[in-house]
């Protein structure tokens, strides 16, 4: 038997009522790398991503079978403390969703909740997180201002900084750049490449160029199944399955 990777799914299925949105998916996410999930709308890639930190639990009528392994712990087991596991998995969405609080508070909120009360330490975390999200220089003089006053691209980087503030081991990105202009998108992509040194990143994207640019591994989803999964170069240049090729070519063309 092969040891499951430190972060992987095993035979994972997600149901919404009677509808099976995800069908028996087993895949691993290697450390220090970016895995891109691609596929047409409704293929289940976002559902799959959201199930990785059990955000699906919040949707009434959803249930899952199979396992999600993280350092030998089964995240789907009934006794698992979902809240605690989410503290180790950061998430960023398509639309930026900063808290209705100051820039500083957006970052300091999580660490403070985790028990860090020391002001100096918090200041440090805010600065580090904002630097890692490449936002520090733009906002360092207005940390007390409302986060909602930032531009869309800045807000998105703030959300990444917020996710980083609690030092997650995994970062889930759900089309993080699709609502942004090209300049902001470029910044986010640079950021992803920079961040993967310390993190496992899983990104859902509709943009094939983006998937090719930022990811090390690519997984192609279709109708809730994992059609093909492998190194990005191989998937994009020499896919095994026809449907993968068609999707990628169609998208490129």
């Amino acid at each position: 038997m092969v040891m499951p990777m430190p972060f992987s799914t095993e035979d994972l299925s997600i149901y919404y009522g009677e509808f099976q949105a995800i069908k028996n998916i087993s895949m691993g996410f290697p450390a220090a790398s970016v895995t891109a999930l691609i596929g047409p709308s409704g293929c289940g890639k976002s559902t799959f991503l959201r199930s990785l930190n059990r955000m699906n639990d919040e949707i009434a009528g959803s249930r899952s079978t199979g396992h999600i392994w993280m350092d030998g712990i089964d995240l789907t087991a009934s006794g698992t403390d979902v809240i605690k596991l989410r503290q180790r998995i950061g998430m960023v969405w398509q639309r930026p969703n900063p808290f209705y609080k100051s820039i500083y508070e957006n970052i300091a909120f999580g660490p403070r909740y985790y028990g860090i009360k020391n002001r100096k330490q918090l200041d440090e975390i805010v600065e580090t997180s904002l630097r890692r999200a490449a936002l520090w220089d733009e906002v360092k003089d207005r940390l007390k201002e409302s986060a909602l006053a930032l531009s869309g691209g800045q807000q998105q980087r703030l959300c990444i900084a917020r996710a980083l503030s609690v030092n997650p081991q995994i970062l889930l990105l759900d089309e993080p750049a699709s609502a942004l202009d090209p300049v902001s998108t470029g910044k986010i992509e640079e950021l992803i490449t920079e961040l993967k040194k310390d993190l496992r990143i899983v990104i859902v994207t509709h943009n094939m160029q983006q998937a090719a640019r930022v990811s090390d591994y690519t997984a192609y989803f279709y109708l809730g199944t994992l059609v093909e999964h492998g190194e990005t170069d191989q998937i994009f240049t020499n896919p095994e399955k026809n449907s993968t090729q068609e999707y990628i070519m169609g998208r490129f063309g």
Partner: peptide, 13 residues
């Protein structure tokens, strides 16, 4: 990472 001294695991403890 400057604030690696406060990993979540440590914060948990």
């Amino acid at each position: 990472m400057e604030h690696s001294k406060v990993t979540p695991r440590e914060a948990q403890r």
